[in-house]
């Protein structure tokens, strides 16, 4: 025993290296649920405060610029608001006339990206909305440009979002022009591949790809990306379809979590139409919830 201790002391650097190496390998070999649990506990305790400080610093720097921009926007929106009020009146009158069914409302939560994977392949982002805000696992996360990903891990105040360029991401999609259905998976870089497209599938470069609504996570009709390459796969059974995602996943800062009203149902939007976002403004407004309107199938 004494001899072993002497050896450890004499080769302490090597011993320390071996212990750390074994600890790393042991962590790698842990069951996935244990890894998730460990990361959940430490992330919520360790990273959220650091991220909040970083975000606070950024906010202070951006405040002046944002204030100027918002002042301009208020003027512009006030003008648009008058026009919209007129259009809403006209819309209600016409809807009554042709007996449109009541449109269902689709609640989304705005959230801010407070962290991202330090890996240069940005596979996940951390947002400042969590279970206390009503966020749950497997909720769709979007921007005005298109789908960002889905929540894979939810903490009380934050949530981890798996983006479309994560190697484990799979999203059921449809080519909007020809209605050919495929599975979107990461291809490399900022490109994805639309898998399981049959050889005779009608897909062309420039076609818009939207969510199919089949997976139960993403509502139907959300913009995902554009086809940039079509070819034949080596095996010859399926077509090779490469898609560039619409949302700029390297720079995404503000996102919307689809938090209710849509799961299990489907948004029916024109494929070329982006979701129209409108703020629900209330007296003494504290809620930041936004409403995306769309027909429910």
């Amino acid at each position: 025993m004494q001899r072993l201790v002497d050896l450890l002391v004499r080769y302490r650097d090597q011993s320390l290296f071996t212990v750390l190496l074994l600890a790393s390998v042991s962590m790698l070999l842990l069951r996935e649920d244990l890894k998730m649990e460990g990361a959940r506990v430490v992330s919520s305790v360790l990273f959220a405060p650091i991220q909040r400080v970083v975000v606070l610093a950024r906010d202070i720097v951006d405040l002046r610029q944002e204030n100027r921009r918002l002042s301009m926007l208020v003027m512009k929106l006030a003008y648009q608001n008058d026009q919209l009020a007129e259009l809403q009146y006209e819309n209600e009158r016409l809807r009554g006339l042709i007996e449109f069914k009541e449109k269902s409302r689709f609640v989304v939560l705005p959230a801010e990206v407070i962290g991202r994977s330090p890996s240069r392949v940005s596979s996940s982002v951390l947002i400042d909305r969590g279970s206390r805000d009503g966020v749950e696992r497997n909720m769709a996360v979007v921007t005005a440009e298109g789908v960002v990903g889905k929540t894979i891990d939810v903490y009380p105040e934050t949530a981890l979002v798996q983006t479309l360029i994560d190697r484990n991401s799979r999203v059921s999609c449809v080519v909007s022009r020809s209605r050919v259905v495929g599975i979107l998976a990461w291809h490399g870089g900022f490109l994805c591949t639309l898998e399981m497209i049959p050889e005779q599938g009608d897909v062309e470069v420039g076609d818009l790809v939207v969510t199919s609504g089949l997976g139960g996570v993403f509502p139907k009709g959300l913009r995902v990306g554009t086809v940039v390459e079509v070819g034949a796969e080596a095996q010859g059974l399926f077509r090779r379809v490469i898609v560039r995602v619409s949302a700029d996943l390297s720079k995404v800062e503000e996102v919307f979590v689809i938090a209710g009203g849509g799961l299990g149902e489907a948004l029916e939007l024109e494929p070329e139409t982006r979701p129209a976002l409108s703020t629900t403004v209330t007296e003494g407004e504290a809620e930041r919830s936004l409403i995306v309107e769309g027909d429910i199938e």
Binding site: S24, L29, K35, V42, F47
Partner: peptide, 14 residues
């Protein structure tokens, strides 16, 4: 590792 996707826990450390 903790901050990245948890399924990679230990890889960066190693």
């Amino acid at each position: 590792d903790l901050y990245q996707a948890p399924d990679q826990l230990g890889l960066n450390a190693l």
